[in-house]
Design a protein around this nucleic acid. Structure first.
Lengths: 333, 333
DNA sequence: CTGAAAGCGCTTACAG
DNA sequence: CTGAAAGCGCTTACAG
């Protein structure tokens, strides 16, 4: 059979309590006792049973990360950063792909998977903010991405309005006047918030706002960006710049521009959002909003862990992720 | 407090055994009893405690997927596919990033994390095959990626020698004669196996084998591919084609070629390996070996689950993943 | 089918 | 510091 704590205790000639104390790094243990126990653990190749521990403690040191899809580069990079941050703190991350399904998102809001996980970091996509805020989740929940300013849960995100304002203003500063937006959407999601920043920048510069230049599309992947760009090129008066609401859309748009034989940035300048590795190596390389993903990961995990260990009462917190505008070839010849 | 099984039993007016039977879908339950129990579960919003169940059953329905890095597109796509395949079978996947550290890989070979997971799908990178085969892992282990034909563990992978032969032969068939290889390595890893197929194809076509055209590089990311391509272009007699041992290397190489003002495929044709989404949308789009990732995921999960439920004695199995050569712009003008 | 009970392997008051 | 015991919430023989 598997070795248990009591086997270790027997071999070391101490009580189970003492072994438990050593494993959990409790104080008041003489170094000789500790050495004896550690020798026994090594000799028996003992490892504690996680299920038993979490059943007893009511805490598993597992958290869930619920994201739309892990194969999408931004979420893959984010997941990697969050896993790394959690591991540093002795926590394991379970990644849950919701695939944009509302049933899967509902499960997340429920609290997920019985009692195994201690808390959840959730990047919602289909569920409406009001529904999220009224959820009676069983576990501490931290939200990522665009949210209304007020809400019930802790929240970590880039200030998308400001970042989108910056991105658009950059296009204006290099002399563009017909600036399109790809990825526009309704509600309070990414597509709405980033459009707000885009429109604000046009207004601040005294540029007219042309609804024909705002493209909705069905998703946030390369094919969507490519299709939207084709629509824009078919316009009687095509744009001289495009702000894409994420890098994947921008990479799709660049593909369409290359196919059309247009030069970037001379004919059309392109800006993205996310700073995925892909865009840095693309030819031309992609100008983009670069959120500090390490910062995001560290702070999201810390905030959730604080919430897990007790102060459920503490006031809701809303952190703004630092970002920079990375100017690359797609806007700077 | 949290609702327990016994609360459900009390409310439904049945024994805990019956509730357990309903939850675990055991036979011999009348539909009325089932309905009563399900009503009680719904009314109390009961969900079973995973820790308690796995402590008792000695099985958690969790498996681990240990990969070098989840932010790398190939592994991100693979992880997504494996998560999906596992979810279909009621299994949750824990993703473990080894980051190419041998300590992390050793932990995987140990059996990982106490008793929580039931088995492991492992894509090793630093640990030597002989060391892997001699590992006394505590849990069923399934290996992904290049392995010597013989071994102790179940194995699922593309026949890399054959696929590399096909990729190289394709370059020969479009008239290339100085074909370089990027990503070459020693031992029994990817870099060695794919070189084998590459050399075999040259030999079969009666082409000379020039060691100067075999580039090793330090890793399998875009910057490595870009650097290797720069080396190749600096050669007195640069190549007219490159077979890159993964798509990321190929995308880096394409970037260098674009910077050098060379035309692809006219001046240099490029083939990759993996078929990540990135390469499909790149301009030019990337010709590549496309392994069937869904097939890989489904079969890896099934094989591991079979091993977990009992037949530990069954003969070791070695599955070959179907693949196709996707011919795109980088080799077809 | 049911009911009462043991036990999975821990942690944690409790009495010393 | 130690030792004996209870209990976390399940599942599963066991006797009916």
């Amino acid at each position: 059979m598997t070795t248990r704590l009591s086997d270790v205790a027997a071999r070391a000639g101490v009580s189970v309590k003492t072994v438990s104390n050593v494993i959990n790094d409790y104080p008041h243990i003489t170094s000789q006792t500790r050495a004896k126990v550690e020798a026994a653990i090594a000799a028996l190749d003992y490892r504690p049973n996680v299920s038993a521990r979490s059943l007893r403690k009511g805490r598993s040191d597992f958290i869930a990360l619920a994201i739309p899809e892990m194969a999408s580069p931004y979420f893959a990079e984010l997941g990697a950063a969050i896993s790394r941050a959690a591991k540093k703190r002795g926590i394991t991350v379970l990644i849950d792909q919701t695939e944009g399904e509302s049933a899967a998102e509902k499960l997340v809001l429920d609290g997920m998977r019985g009692q195994l996980i201690d808390g959840i970091i959730f990047s919602p996509i289909t569920t409406a903010p009001t529904k999220i805020d009224s959820a009676g989740t069983a576990k501490p929940l931290l939200l990522l991405g665009e949210r209304p300013a007020a809400g019930t849960f802790d929240h970590v995100a880039v200030d998308s309005v400001k970042a989108s304002f910056d991105a658009t203003t950059h296009l204006i500063s290099i002399g563009r006047r017909r600036i399109a937006a790809i990825g526009v959407g309704g509600g309070a999601g990414t597509g709405a918030v980033r459009r707000k920043g885009y429109r604000k920048a046009l207004k601040a510069a005294g540029l007219p706002h042309d609804p024909a230049l705002e493209l909705a599309g069905t998703g946030y992947h390369r094919p969507d960006g490519a299709a939207s760009m084709r629509e824009l090129l078919a316009l009687p008066e095509p744009p001289d710049a495009v702000f894409c609401f994420n890098d994947l859309l921008a990479l799709g748009a660049l593909r369409t521009l290359a196919d059309a034989g247009l030069s970037v940035p001379d004919d059309v300048a392109v800006v993205g959002f996310d700073d995925i590795e892909d865009g840095r190596f693309h030819s031309p390389s992609l100008t983009t909003i670069s959120p500090d993903k390490e910062w995001l990961a560290e702070n999201a995990v810390d905030l959730l862990l604080e919430r897990i260990s007790g102060n459920a009462e503490a006031a809701r917190r809303d952190l703004s992720v630092p970002y920079t505008l990375e100017i690359r070839e797609s806007t700077a010849g």
